[in-house]
Write a protein that binds this DNA or RNA. Structure first.
Lengths: 399, 399
DNA sequence: CTGAAAGCGCTTACAG
DNA sequence: CTGAAAGCGCTTACAG
């Protein structure tokens, strides 16, 4: 029996069989389980469209003049330009980007690589990037490395080669060889949430932000402060969780609190992961009086578990999140606000700069490339999920 | 003083000035107000990459043979094919899609048009679409019609012409002329949430789902049931809100309840809109005992207002949402679950079918094109925000 | 200011 | 099974 990975497409006798992505069961009712799709493999091109020759003929000029006129280049007589514009308008002409790309080598397109676009954070980053790049005339292609099907694709497998002039890579697994290949191919690179050796990057002030959030808890009197983190370990230099953990440790140290590894649990940046993490924390013989989660989703999941366990928030346990997700305000979650849209916009701006640079041959080969590392500021937003620990917890540890 | 629209890009002396998108104020602390970006206008292409000629030279065959071998076409001797593959591997060769496009007319790319990708629903739809299309070898370009800057772009302004073979348009403003132009250009079209005359579409069972949700409330005994809808009116045939409203009216009628226009208020599918709508409903002399919101975000916003007003949910007012957003489970929201990922996957499958069809000239010009309209099923998920109305409200109307 | 022509890197009949 | 050559629709020196 052949094993077909969910979400995969396989071709059989000229037809494509597309396995549906399995759905997580959530909530009460059963989940709709879709049947596999069977569709024909793709086919032929569309209807012919007017070309630059048609415009040239109609305007009674050469194609060279049309090209110049349409792109606003100098050395075109105003009357001629007007005639060309008129002809192009009449024919509803638009230049073929593929032909332009072939002639110039420029795609006027950039790629965005994220783990999964359905996630709140990545969707917002994308929105910010697309806004700026679209305004600058660029097309934006999206590549998910962790599709909903759970299949991870590495940067190397992504088919962006020759498709894009630049790439914004968010929180991706980056190895030096892959990066070198990308840069060698002339693709400009900007990263978010990770740092690449010779490319600009944008990150939020993770360490400072986390320190501030946890300091808020120590100032309230908490000593048993849990951290709901990302993965158990991250071998790929996705630095965000590491930095937030350092900030957490900074704050504990500043308050003279000995870190307890049992209080640090993975939450995988999901609602369910946050809930599971909280479950685990509640089984400890000496459970925390406060929890700092590295994302609002995880904090919401944790808060739900606390509520269901009949534990008062913030009376018995305080909760702090990270992001300032829209929902945070609605459930009164104390959290660290970061401007994700702005993160995307900054990355797009850095990429536009990078696209402007001459050829990679000069500065980059010499290793003299300017690599701007930008830090986006954050704010601690105090709401109603944090308060001093219960009295008994403050006296001894026999809560 | 020149007025610069936020989010806009203007060029001055070869540099681009990018105005930051204004941020909505939410929550407690102040909002970070970013300064405008100033970046150089974009520049030159990348480093040369190996071409098909290089591969041909290394494998000692013609470029025609390389082309055939690499694409798995027949009429290539096994030994030759192996040599070509080896050469391509050695050179790390990848064919230039632009050149291929020019020669074949096919882009092997599709566009996705959504109002704003940062929204939960659209991000998920995109994830579903990208998953299937990427597996089928297509690139996916994203176009936002309502960027975060609030500037609306119509389908006509979008630069997808000649860039893509197909288009998935979600909830967009569609006029017939624009559609005809798209189809005439040979771009295959599939819509989600709206229906176009001669193109396949995917929608959820909006009417039935809404009827079911509201029937749940009437069965509990509610008579004063409010509807938090989308816009005040929608001139563009974005049919989802209309159908959900019809389902609402169906349920009222089935229960013998006279509809009250004062109970129908716009919520714009946002948290804040839902909150504002609830505020407004509370000012009514005869406020509702139950609220059906067309999205979970709006329901969450409404629930927040109720909580802050000291009104018990579901003791005094019941709330039902739509979507089954991840957060819904965490706040115990009764809602209508729809499988958004599947919606995207179905649309992608329909588009792949459409891309397979011969030329538009035949079937479509004759108006005989098959236009599959698919309906994705939904489930009512009962949680803890619905209950019978308070006793006094059931007796008379003097709550 | 304008045009003729080469060239970008592929694919595809057409021969052999 | 393989190759020579035309052609896809642009852009860009180079002349004039």
């Amino acid at each position: 029996v052949p094993v077909v990975r969910a979400g995969a497409v396989r071709e059989t006798a000229g037809r494509w069989v597309i396995e549906p992505t399995p759905r997580t069961r959530r909530g009460g009712a059963g989940t709709h389980r879709p049947a596999p799709l069977v569709v024909p493999a793709p086919g032929e091109p569309g209807t012919p469209r007017p070309t630059i020759e048609d415009v040239a003929a109609l305007a009674a000029v050469s194609v060279a003049t049309v090209s110049r006129a349409l792109r606003g280049l100098p050395h075109v007589a105003p009357a001629t330009r007007e005639r060309v514009l008129e002809a192009a308008r009449e024919l509803d002409y638009v230049a073929d980007p593929a032909a332009a790309r072939l002639a110039t080598g420029r795609n006027v397109a950039v790629g965005l690589v994220v783990p999964m676009i359905a996630h709140w954070y990545y969707a917002r980053v994308f929105a910010g990037i697309e806004g700026v790049l679209a305004a600058a005339g660029y097309d934006v292609l999206l590549y998910q490395t962790a599709g909903p099907s759970g299949i991870d694709r590495s940067l190397d497998e992504l088919p962006f080669r020759k498709r894009v002039d630049g790439l914004v890579v968010v929180d991706a697994t980056l190895d030096d060889a892959a990066l070198d290949r990308i840069v060698a191919a002339g693709v400009r690179l900007v990263t978010i949430g990770v740092r690449a050796p010779r490319s600009p990057s944008v990150t939020v002030e993770n360490r400072r932000a986390a320190r501030q959030a946890v300091a808020h808890l120590t100032e309230l009197g908490h000593r048993r402060i849990a951290l709901i983190a990302g993965m158990d370990e991250d071998p790929f230099g996705f630095s965000t969780p590491l930095e937030r953990r350092r900030g957490y440790e900074d704050a504990l140290e500043a308050a003279g609190v000995e870190p307890d590894p049992a209080l640090v649990v993975p939450g995988h940046f999901t609602y369910d992961g946050g809930a599971a993490a909280m479950q685990r924390l509640l089984t400890l013989s000496d459970p925390p009086t406060a929890v700092f989660a590295m994302s609002d989703e995880m904090a919401i999941g944790a808060a739900k578990v606390l509520r269901e366990a009949g534990i008062d928030v913030p009376g018995q346990v305080s909760v702090v999140g990270f992001d300032d997700h829209e929902v945070a305000a609605y459930i009164g979650l104390t959290t660290v606000r970061q401007d994700v849209l702005w993160t995307g916009e900054r990355a797009a701006a850095l990429l536009l700069e990078r696209l402007r640079e001459p050829s990679a041959s000069r500065s980059e080969r010499r290793g003299a490339a300017p690599s701007a590392h930008e830090s986006v500021p954050t704010h601690l937003v105090l709401r109603s999920t944090t308060a001093p620990p219960p009295v008994r917890a403050r006296d001894g540890r026999d809560r």
